[in-house]
């Protein structure tokens, strides 16, 4: 067995899956509360990635950073999370709020409208060119330096940062949802919105908070993607959003640990099918696996089977 190939695919799959997982969490949270497939979520990720790129430019550009790399990373993450979060809140307030009791498909179309708007507005304002984080050129080139694992496999600093960052964010989110008042309100709202409202929970606030947190995670995912995979461009959100959506579903949509598991599953499935089956048909392989999973377990890996109440 070629351990180098196996471990490399494992590292690639986990770090890629971590990015999917962060985006998928936002999808899942929103779905859990509003039963809304927020197709504009991938574009929030795109905006987060561009915010990170803007921060690099502000601090002197890739090869001439005026602050230490760790400070830059923190500033990038904070700004992207804040910016992404605010964008998510705005989308909810102005596009979705009036549609809460509309037929289910109306907000879906609105979400597609928001996605169209964001992608093309980004192209208008920022240009269609691919921009690069160029983290290989940073003073301490985080994407090029690496730790060595067994079988002379390498794991770059960027991959370590992504995996560690994702773990921190997921743990923080779990603590928030489990321990805080607002987190409990979220779970209650997700369980039954009307009953929660009757119990005195301010559902509007809960929804705003959900959008903020979910979109902030997508913003962080945008920065993580930038430091490892470099490119940012206006249409990057579409594909990432699609995969993250798939990840959310595979894990069981509306279920937070499920979203993380789903993200990792997709990342690993992609990596291993490239490594062991065929790079050409890796997407096809992933889709075929997923269809099989969905048919066997329609509610996803960790989702609870939907029981219809009469």
């Amino acid at each position: 067995m070629n351990w180098n190939l196996f471990l490399t695919e494992l590292v690639a799959g986990v770090s890629h899956g971590a990015v999917y997982a962060l985006i998928a969490l936002g999808y899942s949270m929103v779905y859990g509360i509003l039963k809304l497939l927020n197709f504009a979520h991938g574009d929030v990720y795109m905006v987060g990635s561009f915010i990170g790129f803007g921060i690099i430019t502000v601090f002197g550009g890739a090869t001439n950073l005026s602050i230490p790399v760790w400070a830059l990373l923190i500033v990038m993450l904070l700004c992207a999370m804040l910016g992404g979060g605010l964008l998510g809140v705005m989308i909810e307030r102005f596009a979705y709020r009036r549609l809460r009791n509309a037929p289910r498909i109306a907000p879906l179309i609105t979400a597609l409208g928001v996605s169209f708007f964001l992608e093309n507005a980004a192209q208008l304002v920022l240009g269609a060119q691919y921009q690069s984080y160029d983290s290989f050129g940073w003073k301490s080139p985080i994407a090029l330096r690496h730790f060595t694992l067994p079988a002379s496999t390498v794991i770059s600093y960027a991959e370590v940062i992504i995996i560690a960052g994702t773990i921190v964010l997921v743990v923080a989110l779990t603590l928030f949802v489990q321990r805080t008042q607002l987190g409990k309100a979220m779970r209650a709202t997700s369980f039954d919105r009307e009953a929660a409202a009757m119990m005195g929970i301010d559902v509007d606030n809960v929804i705003v908070a959900t959008f903020f947190i979910g979109s902030a995670l997508a913003g962080a995912a945008g920065v993580f993607n930038g430091i490892e995979y470099q490119q940012v461009w206006p249409y990057m959100g579409f594909t990432a959003g699609l995969y993250a959506f798939i990840a959310a579903v595979v894990g069981g949509i509306g279920n937070l640990p499920g979203a993380v598991l789903g993200g990792l599953t997709i990342g690993l499935a992609q990596a291993f099918s490239i490594g062991y089956i065929s790079s050409t048909f890796s997407d096809a392989v992933v889709f075929a696996i997923l269809i099989a999973v969905m048919i066997v377990r329609p509610s996803g890996l960790l989702g609870k089977a939907a029981v219809s109440k009469v």
Binding site: L5, T8, A12, Q231, T239, Q270, A271, G275, S279
Partner: peptide, 9 residues
């Protein structure tokens, strides 16, 4: 997709 590391392996 932008993940090349799987292929480079």
């Amino acid at each position: 997709s932008t993940d090349f590391s799987s292929l480079i392996a």
